[in-house]
């Protein structure tokens, strides 16, 4: 037999990691500083990886000359139109799939068959269908956005508690009202999560979309820089895409906080 004497030691806690914004920013800044230091100590040849300062100088030159905005504005327009087209059709089809048995299996079969196709492989087809101008570029982005949106929306609709829909029916609400006031808001969190995915996909596909026949655009700029082995410009373009991705993710975060403040 043994005796126990004394205070009971705390043994809970942990298993609850918290986000620390300063640690995230600090890590990124630290990595860039380390990179610059390695270049300055000439441990990495600039042919293989240009120094952050060189990339910064290139970015600055591009900004001052207006070149950056020329490319960025063209890309933003394509992203906005392509993403919106893909999203609007995706939500409409996703809703239909989530609501009607007649559409569910046929449409989901088509979506499952087409979703995994790399949209880059379809670019030549889009050029034949939509021409070498803006049409094929918007179609590339729109198609890439469409399928994940259908899946996210249909999943969101499936996730709306059936009890809430029965409630709407129990109050004699018309179908459109149930869709508008119960199904859509109920699916909104899943749709917004889908936005995080589709906005990234849209940015990834921007480079593919601007492969063919684009005079301007960040993707076209990156491709041209890569082709010329202009590493400073290549990485400057990649930094712009990365910042664009961060900005979009931040905007979606804000939208989530505002639209889902009830959570």
């Amino acid at each position: 037999m043994r005796r126990i004497d004394g205070a009971i030691a705390f043994r809970g806690g942990g298993f609850a990691p918290r986000a620390r914004a300063w640690a995230a920013a600090g890590t990124l800044i630290g990595l860039v500083a380390l990179w610059q230091a390695l270049e300055m100590a000439q441990l990495v040849p600039t042919l293989f990886l240009p120094a952050p300062l060189a990339i910064g100088r290139t970015l600055w030159a591009l900004t001052v000359s207006g070149e950056l905005w020329k490319h960025l504005s063209a890309s933003l327009l394509r992203l906005a139109v392509g993403w919106t087209v893909g999203t609007v059709f995706g939500i409409a089809v996703g809703l239909a799939v989530g609501l009607w048995s007649a559409l569910r299996s046929p449409v989901m079969a088509v979506v499952a068959a087409l979703f995994p196709i790399p949209k880059i492989a379809l670019v030549p087809l889009f050029i034949i269908w939509f021409g070498i101008g803006e049409g094929s570029k918007i179609a590339t982005i729109g198609f890439g956005v469409f399928f994940p949106t259908v899946i996210a929306t249909a999943g969101g609709v499936d996730g709306v508690p059936r009890g809430l829909i029965r409630m709407g029916q129990g109050f004699g609400l018309p179908t459109w009202k149930i869709v508008r006031s119960i199904v859509l808001p109920g699916a909104l969190p899943a749709i917004l999560t889908g936005f995080r995915v589709t906005s990234s996909i849209a940015i990834v596909l921007l480079v593919a979309a601007e492969m063919i026949g684009a005079e301007r655009g960040i993707g076209a700029f990156i491709l041209a820089a890569g082709n010329l082995y202009d590493m400073d410009a290549l990485l400057a373009g990649i930094v712009v895409l990365s910042v664009l991705g961060l900005a979009v993710a931040w905007a979606i975060g804000v939208a989530e906080r505002v639209l889902l403040r009830w959570r």
Partner: peptide
């Protein structure tokens, strides 16, 4: 002249024969 980069030689030919460029 309005330059249209199309990445591949086969695309250049196709762009002209299809009248897109």
């Amino acid at each position: 002249v309005s330059l249209r980069p199309v990445q591949q030689i086969s695309n250049m030919l196709a762009a002209v024969t299809s009248g897109q460029v």
